[in-house]
């Protein structure tokens, strides 16, 4: 209880960190990034203007930017003391290993399977004929 009131007091003197202008600015940044992502996704769909790999890199960078703004401003972490920021940021670094290791594992498995399971490989490269396209409709649904 004591610490709760103490924290509240410091935050009262620190009211400027809850500036609504910053919140709205964050909102516009997030919206702008989302609209831009959507724009290039649709542009790619219509015109194939960039290789998909580069586009994916752009999407990932913009996602991380959005995540940064949500954590820093909405969740207010940027305004906490350094101890608090570090106790969350350092364990989060595990994600770097987590993503790289498991993506690499997926790629390696695909290569191994394509090399040693030729039947699977041929099948996965054979387009389905339009007539064979499985009926999407479920029984009982019109």
């Amino acid at each position: 209880m004591d610490s709760a009131t103490a924290v509240q007091h410091t935050q009262h003197s620190d009211k400027h960190s809850f500036d609504t202008r910053i919140i709205w600015r964050t909102f516009w940044v997030l919206t702008a990034i989302t609209v831009f992502e959507l724009f290039i996704a649709i542009l790619y769909y219509e015109t194939d203007f960039l290789p998909k790999h580069i586009l994916n890199g752009v999407f990932i960078i913009m996602t991380l930017a959005k995540a940064f703004f949500i954590i820093a401003e909405f969740m207010h972490l940027r305004h906490e003391i350094k101890n608090m920021i570090m106790v969350l940021a350092v364990p989060a670094l595990l994600f770097i290993w987590f993503v790289i290791a498991f993506m690499g594992d997926g790629v390696s498995y695909r290569h191994l399977r394509n090399r040693y399971d030729r039947y699977q490989y041929e099948q996965s490269k054979t387009p389905v004929k339009k007539a064979e396209k499985p009926e999407a409709k479920k029984p009982g649904v019109e």
Binding site: S3, A4, A6, V7, T10, S13, D14, S17, R78, H79, E80, I81, K82, N83, M84, I85, V87
Partner: peptide, 25 residues
């Protein structure tokens, strides 16, 4: 920009949350 706290604050000397937030948070 961290929260405004007195310079030289000893966070780990006990008696206060070293994270400067309430337990529940």
């Amino acid at each position: 920009m961290a929260q405004a706290v007195p310079a030289g604050q000893k966070w780990w000397s006990g008696g206060k949350s070293p994270f400067h937030v309430e337990y529940g948070k």
